[in-house]
Amino acid sequence: MIKLTKLNGVEFLLNDSHIQIIESIPESKIVLDNKDYYLVKESFDEIINKIAEFNAKTADKESYLKARRGLTEVADENQESAIK
């Protein structure tokens, strides 16, 4: 699922596997398989990048989780160093 922002500023999650088409009109219009659609603030390229990032995360969950843990550990160490 990807996080997007409606034109009124409300954030929501969208299951990208239900996207049928994305149009740039100039805002982005995302049409789903059931013909419902959303107008969002994100550009066409931002939406594509979010989908690619989400698919990469789900395709290689173990590596993604290890990287996230590593980033958390580094942040914790930096925070501890700052306190000392």
Score class of each variant (00 low, 15 high):
residue 36 D to V: 06
residue 79 Q to N: 09
residue 81 S to F: 12
residue 17 S to L: 01
residue 12 F to H: 04
residue 59 A to W: 09
residue 49 N to M: 04
residue 47 I to A: 02
residue 57 K to H: 06
residue 54 F to P: 01
residue 63 S to D: 12
residue 76 D to N: 12
residue 3 K to V: 07
residue 80 E to D: 11
residue 4 L to D: 00
residue 6 K to G: 03
residue 63 S to N: 15
residue 81 S to M: 13
residue 68 R to N: 12
residue 28 S to A: 14
residue 21 I to P: 01
residue 14 L to N: 05
residue 59 A to H: 05
residue 29 K to G: 10
residue 17 S to W: 00
residue 78 N to I: 15
residue 52 A to D: 06
residue 45 D to Q: 10
residue 78 N to S: 13
residue 53 E to K: 02
residue 69 R to G: 09
residue 34 N to G: 04
residue 24 S to E: 11
residue 47 I to Y: 02
residue 81 S to P: 04
residue 23 E to D: 13
residue 23 E to Q: 12
residue 37 Y to D: 11
residue 11 E to K: 05
residue 16 D to T: 01
residue 76 D to I: 15
residue 76 D to A: 15
residue 83 I to S: 08
residue 80 E to H: 09
residue 75 A to Y: 12
residue 62 E to M: 11
residue 4 L to T: 02
residue 40 V to R: 10
residue 32 L to G: 07
residue 26 P to N: 08
residue 49 N to H: 05
residue 10 V to D: 10
residue 39 L to S: 07
residue 43 S to H: 07
residue 65 L to D: 14
residue 37 Y to P: 11
residue 72 T to P: 13
residue 70 G to W: 10
residue 36 D to E: 10
residue 6 K to F: 01
residue 27 E to K: 12
residue 59 A to N: 13
residue 20 Q to T: 07
residue 12 F to A: 02
residue 78 N to H: 11
residue 14 L to R: 01
residue 69 R to K: 15
residue 54 F to H: 02
residue 27 E to N: 14
residue 33 D to Q: 12
residue 23 E to Y: 11
residue 3 K to G: 00
residue 72 T to E: 15
residue 74 V to R: 14
residue 13 L to Q: 06
residue 61 K to N: 05
residue 78 N to E: 14
residue 40 V to P: 07
residue 46 E to K: 00
residue 31 V to Q: 06
residue 31 V to G: 06
residue 16 D to F: 03
residue 5 T to R: 06
residue 83 I to N: 08
residue 56 A to W: 03
residue 84 K to G: 14
residue 19 I to D: 12
residue 1 M to I: 06
residue 67 A to P: 09
residue 33 D to I: 15
residue 66 K to N: 15
residue 33 D to Y: 10
residue 10 V to I: 12
residue 55 N to M: 09
residue 67 A to E: 15
residue 73 E to A: 13
residue 14 L to V: 06
residue 54 F to T: 06
residue 11 E to F: 03
residue 23 E to V: 07
residue 30 I to N: 08
residue 18 H to D: 05
residue 31 V to C: 08
residue 2 I to V: 00
residue 57 K to C: 01
